[in-house]
């Protein structure tokens, strides 16, 4: 049975069909990429899966359980967590407290006494070891991304959704994130990630899904998808692709 299963999921904002009739599955332990031009519905798709938005149509299942329309904290407790495209750490809290929130709530629901040790471990894992006391607001963009990843991991997710985690990072930093993701992959975390950096996807994942104007237009191994004429068309904008509006 697939860990995540989407069946004909749609969402419109007024006249804009942000996501329309999208179906796919993600298996346990997989790392699946999501690609698509700006405004093609990638973030909306994540908002639907995590419960931040309620779909107009379609079903979403996690390990066979229908979670369509659940509130985000229940979805998180069930095992799906995300990072945000525009990082959103709890600015007024320390780095450690940020991670603790995920650890005390989420799927882990660990007791306060033991949660701190695990939070420290996760901070070290993402490269923020020994910086737990630092206010989140004073971290650099790269470190805030790391912090969000640690906070998400702290909830003990079955499935981790990463929305452009690598955007805005230098090549060296990107390489650092990739090392981290490979490590998470080995630890058995299932990952669904939106990424514009195609070479990163080529390297990390065996399967990508391509969205255009809210529709799934291709799915398969990254090199095959990258060579697909429809996908090329959408990215080069020669045809009817790009930010088409319904």
């Amino acid at each position: 049975m697939a860990l995540l299963e989407l069946e004909g999921v749609s969402k419109a904002f007024g006249g804009v069909r942000a996501v329309s009739g999208v179906s796919f599955t993600v298996d346990e332990g997989e790392l699946v990429g999501v690609m698509g031009p700006n405004g093609s519905g990638k973030t909306t798709l994540f908002n639907l899966i995590t419960g931040a938005l309620r779909p107009d149509a379609g079903r979403i299942r996690l390990a066979g359980r229908d979670i369509t329309g659940w509130s985000p904290h229940r979805v998180c407790a069930e095992g799906i967590t995300r990072t945000f495209q525009h990082v959103r750490p709890f600015a007024g809290l320390s780095a450690l407290e940020n991670v603790l929130v995920g650890r005390l709530y989420g799927r882990a629901r660990e007791r306060r006494a033991t949660a701190a040790a695990e939070a420290e471990r996760l901070l070290a894992l993402v490269g923020l070891g020994g910086r737990g006391h630092v206010p989140a607001a004073s971290l650099t963009l790269m470190d805030r991304k790391r912090l969000e990843l640690a906070r998400a991991l702290a909830t003990a997710p079955h499935l981790l959704l990463l929305d452009e985690l690598m955007a805005g990072l230098s090549p060296v930093e990107t390489e650092g994130v990739m090392v981290l993701l490979r490590r998470l992959q080995r630890e058995g975390v299932t990952i669904l990630m939106v990424e514009h950096i195609v070479w990163a996807l080529l390297d990390l994942s065996r399967r990508v899904i391509v969205l255009s104007a809210g529709e799934k237009i291709a799915e398969g191994p990254p090199d095959a998808v990258a060579a697909d004429p429809t996908v090329v068309d959408v990215y080069l904008g020669t045809g009817a692709g790009g930010a088409r509006r319904a």
Partner: peptide, 25 residues
């Protein structure tokens, strides 16, 4: 010092991010 207090502060900082981290806001 409590779990509830930390959750409340998370709500204060960013409600959507708190929800995504499992906090019943």
């Amino acid at each position: 010092r409590s779990r509830a207090g930390l959750g409340m502060q998370a709500v204060r900082e960013d409600e959507e991010a708190a929800e995504a981290s499992g906090v019943g806001t």
